[in-house]
């Protein structure tokens, strides 16, 4: 039954990675920018959930604080796009990447200044509750994480495949200039993308804090989510989720079966190998330039 437990914890952390990776890919698809701050936005979302929910802070009921957090994180994503990203439209990918790296550092600093550097735990209704199944102990929090991720994925799928707005976003992601000419409000689409990315980061943060401790450097987790996004090919939403699950599953199993110290390396080795062997991931979107 140990196997089942490893599987569950792997899937649960894989969901969090997948959701962060989803944020990366979403922003990349819509704006061609890579948001290196997505991991730190996740950390911020986690802290906001804790700040709203925990008895030491605002002590709001969990079911009330989560929608509030989603609202705050959506507005947060909107503001980041408005204040920073809109200024650099048209600059090189690298300049924008560096901008978001710096934003991540600033977020980390702000979180540290407000909430300190000690680990925080979310006092969610699931805390410490377990389900006993055939002798296996399954954390309720982990099951919660998986269920929420599945629901969110279905929601996103319908948004991008069925709604007019979602389709406009996909179009704008293919070619900004062309989308602009056919009358898609590219800037508004970009704002919306950041709102959704902020919300995704918030939910990922909430889920992460529901099953573990959070401190300002939790955002570095974003690097593992990169691995997930790269495995998924950086252009595919389902790819990002699958990549997240792969990375999530690798961790507990390599931790169990490899000598200590080595398990930590495995996600990064996988990342390096994927980049070398299948440079554009398993679901490539790169085509060659016509001259």
């Amino acid at each position: 039954m140990e196997l089942f437990q490893l599987l569950l914890s792997g899937l649960a952390s894989g969901c969090v990675y997948g959701l962060i990776a989803l944020g990366f890919v979403l922003i990349y698809k819509a704006t061609e920018a890579i948001n290196f701050a997505q991991g730190d936005m996740m950390m911020f979302g986690a802290f906001i959930t804790i700040w709203l929910t925990n008895s030491g802070y605002n002590n709001l009921p969990f079911l009330f604080s989560v929608p509030l957090m989603i609202l705050i994180m959506g507005a947060f994503g909107f503001l980041i796009e408005r204040i920073f990203l809109r200024q650099v439209i048209g600059q090189s990918q690298i300049a924008i990447a560096i901008l978001t790296i710096a934003l991540g550092f600033v977020l980390r600093f702000i979180a540290g200044a407000i909430w300190g550097h000690e680990p925080h735990f979310l006092e969610s209704p699931m805390v410490g509750k377990n389900i006993y199944l055939n002798g296996a102990v399954l954390g309720l929090a982990e099951i919660f994480v998986i269920i929420v991720t599945v629901l969110l994925t279905v929601l996103l799928y319908f948004f991008f495949a069925k709604t007019k707005l979602g389709i406009a976003m996909v179009a704008a992601s293919q070619n900004q200039l062309a989308a602009f000419y056919v009358g898609i409000p590219v800037k508004r689409v970009q704002s919306l993308t950041w709102v959704i990315a902020g919300i995704l980061a918030g939910i990922a943060g909430m889920l992460f804090s529901a099953k573990g401790s959070v401190d300002p450097i939790t955002g570095l987790l974003g690097i593992k989510a990169f691995a997930a996004a790269v495995i998924g090919g950086f252009g595919s939403l389902p790819g990002a989720l699958i990549g997240g699950l792969i990375i999530g599953l690798i961790e507990p199993f390599s931790g169990r079966y490899l000598p200590s110290g080595f398990s930590h390396l495995v996600p990064y080795i996988v990342l390096v190998l994927v980049l070398i062997l299948r440079p554009h991931g398993l679901f490539s979107q790169i085509s060659h330039k016509k001259v």
């Binding site: 200024q87 934003l103 980390r108």
Partner: peptide
């Protein structure tokens, strides 16, 4: 002293200003 990591914070802020106003 209450703000560890303030160097990195300010440094990043400067960088953001540069990218926005002086790439």
């Amino acid at each position: 002293m209450n703000f560890p990591g303030i160097e990195t914070g300010i440094f990043s802020l400067i960088l953001i200003l540069f990218i926005l106003f002086e790439p």
